[in-house]
Design a protein around this nucleic acid. Sequence first.
DNA 1: TATTAAATAAGAATAATTATCATTTAGGAA
DNA 2: TTCCTAAATGATAATTATTCTTATTTAATA
Lengths: 148, 148
Amino acid sequence: MSINLDQIKAEISDVGLKATHQRIVIYDYLMKSKTHPTVDRIYDDVKNHIPSVSVATIYRVLEDFVTAGLIYKVATREGTMRYDANTAPHNHIYCTNTQDIIDYNDQELNDLIANFLSKKKIKNFKISDIKLQINGEKLDPDDSVSIN
Amino acid sequence: MSINLDQIKAEISDVGLKATHQRIVIYDYLMKSKTHPTVDRIYDDVKNHIPSVSVATIYRVLEDFVTAGLIYKVATREGTMRYDANTAPHNHIYCTNTQDIIDYNDQELNDLIANFLSKKKIKNFKISDIKLQINGEKLDPDDSVSIN
DNA sequence: TATTAAATAAGAATAATTATCATTTAGGAA
DNA sequence: TTCCTAAATGATAATTATTCTTATTTAATA
Ligand SMILES: [Mn+2]
Ligand SMILES: [Mn+2]
Ligand SMILES: [Zn+2]
Ligand SMILES: [Zn+2]
């Protein structure tokens, strides 16, 4: 089921949550996923492993993971939330046609922005994270987006 | 009612929409607003001018404005949309405590990011806009956030 | 002023998410 | 190991945000 079951169980336990079958499968799925899936997508795929799983459990587990800092929640203008197990600082390319969210990892860009903002003084505010969203359209919706 | 009624009517007409009382009041309200209000907030405030207004009209008008490019829609992790009449490139500071969205206008930052990305080649993608979201918490929720 | 295509009000319908509660289970204690 | 219990789950009801439908009204043009 999972490449590294013990590691996954440990990560869930380490944030103070019971390592249930449902949580393990959901977290494993998100770790492998690169598409920032919706609840419905996660639900459908988790059902392949656990046919009896309830959609309420998917919502509950995802929210618990977000609260624990294991995953991120990404809001979209379509009104559906998307989930991301990549908690390292990174940015997103969003196709307004296909609704694809593509990770854009660029340490140079992260540093450039962090550096710039550290020079500015934002009074009465404590920054927790910085996200750049690059909106636009895939030229060929069937093809993939790549950088450089 | 409005500082510059004719200007507002012209802007609405110019994007091919009838300048109805409802649209004028909503657009005027958004232009003056600095809080990136929710539909509920807009509805409550517009009701002061037009007591008979329907919430469906608020949704319809806002969506029409977004489609026409008159305003922007901002998704939040709380699951409610927020609306912004500032269509010039600018970034947002988001307080995860108070849900305040504060405009962060900094041409230097806009240029820095645009410049950096123009050097990178993002294959198979046409960028339409770039948004930086600075997430964090107000230190004093009653006080305002200011830059520099 | 009359015409009419477009817009609105009211409320029903849908979609996404959250709450409730009886049942099950993970994980520690015995 | 087996037992115990707090925590988690499954089923489904409830809520919230948003969209749809249709009869009525209105802005814009002639
Ligand atoms: Mn604004
Ligand atoms: Mn919703
Ligand atoms: Zn991501
Ligand atoms: Zn703004």
